[in-house]
Design a protein around this nucleic acid. Structure first.
Length: 412
DNA sequence: CGTCCACTGGAATCAAGGGTCT
DNA sequence: AGACCCTTGATTCCAGTGGACG
């Protein structure tokens, strides 16, 4: 078959010159072996093994910072479990990420729809009372007469917003079940997580505890080499690159996801540039790009109100006010709202939105007491010029700039 | 040393918007 | 169509507070 010419041709040719299998460099990829995690895997397997004989394993609580392999290990174990019991006669493995779905009904809905295969018994996305979902779910589970292992990743997310009701649901479900059993694996990156749980749930959830320590720079190197060997031809990778990626990520909390991102994006950049060798310079570009993209991503997802708040902060900042208070921002905010024509919210709400921006890392805030002059949050902008400029181009702020007197005089 | 400011942080509540069920 | 249910974003109310000032 003869291929016609296309404007994409030059990109097709270039594709996959440096990177043979892009998938492998994604952090979501599950390799056949996970370096430096055999201890944890061993422990978990030991705990879960009884499930293959329809005996209920203990609940497990797993601690570890982001990118320490918790998710990868659990997915790996899920795969292995499936290998050992291909038809899921004795146990089923369910994985939920509570960061993605963080509402009680969202979590129950997700669990249900992974477990329930019959079409006519599926639980609707919304509209049902929690009690009802719970009732249907536990009935269904009990009919199956087997062990359900439910992994709740980023469990603290959901908790922060909704308290421990669902955990109560799930951990007490066994009391109502006649034949089946449910066991919960909670994953959290907050080591103080259990402090906030009620004592009953604390003891139930934490029957076993496993800790994932951050990877060291050397361990990260192993991980990267392990993946790189299938991805790059020899000599494509400058020998300094992997140690550099590892070192950067290790500095920053030993996050394997980050290390992989550095490597992948660096390779992408090199490939797109038409360079034949990936070097440290590419990694540095990658690092900037990642940071930039992350902030842009956040900015695209926040609501108009949050944008207006952020704009007020930027305005204050530009006017040389780098120790602004909530009150300062609120006055600017009201002005801006009037100009861009959106309703102004209460100060209480704005204080909340500011806290959210703080949590997203866009601004840096600190509660300060000004003595007689009250107590407030004092904060500063945490993003660079590029991002700010991009942000201000948002069409929401169109009116804000168009009314500006044209200062453009004679061009010289 | 006590006061008292300008907020913070938490909770209760409402309205709107997604939906199901009968 | 009307009764219910959950989520989200916003409002309202209230108790609490660090520390400069008097």
């Amino acid at each position: 078959m003869k291929k016609e010419k296309s404007i994409f041709d030059r990109y097709m040719e270039r594709r996959n010159i440096l990177i043979k299998n892009r998938n492998v460099l994604q952090s979501s990829f599950i390799p056949d072996q996970l370096p430096h995690r055999s201890d944890q895997i061993g422990k978990i397997v030991e705990i879960l093994a009884p499930s293959l004989n329809k005996d209920k394993p203990s609940n497990i609580l797993i601690y570890g910072k982001t990118g320490t392999g918790k998710t990868a290990v659990l997915n790996y174990i899920g795969k292995e479990l499936k290998k050992a019991d291909p038809d899921e006669l004795n146990c089923s493995f369910v994985y939920i990420n509570c960061e993605v779905v963080d509402t009680p009904s969202g979590i129950l809905y997700n669990i249900s729809n992974q477990i329930i295969t019959e079409y006519n018994r599926k639980i609707p996305f919304t509209g049902w009372a929690l009690d009802k979902i719970y009732y249907e779910l536990s009935n269904y589970i009990d009919e199956k007469n087997k062990i359900f292992i439910i992994v709740l990743d980023e469990i603290d997310r959901s908790f922060k917003k909704n308290g421990d009701d669902i955990f109560y649901f799930l951990t007490t479900m066994n009391e109502k079940l006649k034949t089946s059993r449910v066991s919960i694996i909670g994953i959290t990156n907050n080591s103080k997580f259990t402090e906030f749980l009620s004592t009953k749930i604390k003891s139930r959830l934490g029957e076993e505890k496993i800790v994932f320590n951050p990877y060291t720079s050397f361990e990260l190197q192993d991980i990267l080499y392990d993946r790189a060997k299938d991805v790059f031809d020899p000599n494509v990778l400058d020998p300094a690159v992997i140690p550099y990626c590892a070192a950067l990520a290790a500095q920053d909390s030993g996050d394997a996801r980050k290390a992989l991102d550095f490597l992948r994006i660096a390779a992408d950049i090199a490939e797109r540039n038409g360079d034949s060798v990936i070097t440290e310079a590419h990694v540095n570009f990658a690092r900037e790009k990642i940071e930039f993209d992350a902030v842009i991503e956040v900015m695209n997802t926040i609501t108009n109100q949050s944008k207006a708040v952020l704009m007020s902060i930027i305005r204050n900042f530009e006017n040389g006010n780098n120790k602004m208070t909530t009150g300062d921002v609120y006055t600017t905010y009201r002005d801006i709202c009037a100009i861009i024509n959106i309703p102004a919210l209460t100060q209480r709400r704005i204080a909340g939105l500011i806290s959210e921006l703080d949590m997203l890392g866009i601004i840096h805030a600190q509660v300060k007491s000004l003595g007689r002059n009250g107590r407030t949050k004092e904060f500063s902008l945490n993003i660079n010029q590029d991002v700010t400029e991009r942000f201000m181009k948002d069409q929401l702020f169109e009116p804000l700039f168009s009314y500006k007197p044209s200062k453009q005089m004679t061009l010289m």
